[in-house]
Design a protein around this nucleic acid. Structure first.
Lengths: 114, 114
DNA sequence: GTAACCAGTATCATGTAGTATACCAGTAAT
DNA sequence: ATTACTGGTATACTACATGATACTGGTTAC
């Protein structure tokens, strides 16, 4: 029950760090829903500033979660696309949604179940 | 692809909020590994302060993730135990570990896979 | 020429999560 | 009586994530 527990905790913290910020999930959501361009993503996420979006997109590109492509048309066009790796995060998201729904019931209704 | 998306995002944010802090996961980990008493938990988590532990335990009790029991022996003994609800979080944790491991490979080794 | 779009960057302000440190009341052992 | 344990609280500080706001350089349209 220990040993590679160290390693698992590390992996866990990586994941937590990755989704740590306030905007990560909304951004992933937006891009996975088909938004591709900077202003488009920005408009799809109420409340986000260009500063935060810019910062997050940069980090996400470095983490290989997004692919940034510059098309040298005129005017220049920049496209952000999710990688497979990013899409693979879907399972984690699904589990979190599942748990979050249950959590809401437990906390709000009090615990009837054991 | 929308509709209850609002609701799902909310559930997701609940979960994120729940694991948001720096110490939540280590504390859950510690308690699920059998630690029960305040100082015991505290010693099992390097770097945590009594203040943070106290604060977190309080919140976690309110969220029905922990059961706090005071045994009026002498000296007084306080026990923290995980609820079923807390243990049910294990699946999320497992998914996060799984993803975190893959993430590490993708980021560190560069992306050979598509 | 000026207004409006694109994809951002730069600078400064603020709030809150977390840290550091000390302390309290009670019990027990030496 | 002093040291060390228990389960915590109180106060002060600090750093970092985020927010607000303005600006840049290029293109297109009127």
């Amino acid at each position: 029950m220990a040993r590679n527990q160290q390693q698992e905790l590390k992996a866990l913290q990586d994941t937590l760090y990755f989704i740590g910020g306030k905007w990560r999930i909304p951004i992933i959501n937006s891009i996975c829903n088909g938004n591709r361009r900077f202003r488009e993503i920005e408009r799809s996420i109420p409340g986000i500033t260009t500063r935060m979006l810019s910062k997050e997109l940069k980090e996400m590109e470095q983490s290989k979660l997004l692919k940034r492509t510059v098309y040298d048309e005129t005017p220049v066009l920049v496209e952000y696309a999710p990688t497979e790796h990013c899409r693979s995060f879907g399972k984690v998201i699904a589990e979190m949604i599942r748990w979050g729904k249950g959590h809401r019931e437990v906390v709000i209704r009090g615990n009837k179940a054991k």
